[in-house]
């Protein structure tokens, strides 16, 4: 499902420009980047509180097309710029990792019906 429609359903605020609207197939929730590298499936949205450039680098290297930053953590403009350069979308939510992961999973499953 497109990130834009996922955002509509789950209340995500997309911070990167609208040129990047990737297809989200699944999700992976973790704040440990080594764990993300080892276990996140391609095409997953990365749900995390790590709002820095290395999350973008990991997402790019491991084909994770979008990052959701939880707990309303602010995302520095330079991180958004880097993400746009790499074609990675960044979205923000006030929810914590547990809540937003549930909403995303539910939306993806409903979309598949």
């Amino acid at each position: 499902m497109k990130l834009s429609s996922l955002a509509e359903k789950t209340g995500l605020k997309i911070l990167t420009n609208s040129e990047t609207d990737p297809e989200i197939e699944s999700g992976y929730t973790s704040d440990l980047l080594s764990d993300v590298m080892a276990n996140a499936e391609e095409g997953s949205v990365l749900v995390t509180i790590q709002a820095h450039k290395n999350s973008v680098a990991v997402a790019s290297q491991f084909d994770l097309p979008a990052i959701v930053i939880c707990n309303g953590r602010s995302v520095p403009q330079e991180v958004i710029d880097t993400a746009e350069g790499e074609g990675i979308a960044i979205a923000q939510t006030k929810d914590n990792q547990f809540e937003i992961s549930y909403k995303i999973k539910k939306a993806i499953m409903e979309n598949a019906l």
Binding site: L33, S34, D35, A38, T48, H52
Partner: peptide
């Protein structure tokens, strides 16, 4: 705090 240093790096690499 940046999400590194969990002690998984070298074991991941080896795996």
């Amino acid at each position: 705090s940046m999400g590194f240093g969990a002690g998984m790096g070298l074991s991941n690499t080896k795996r």
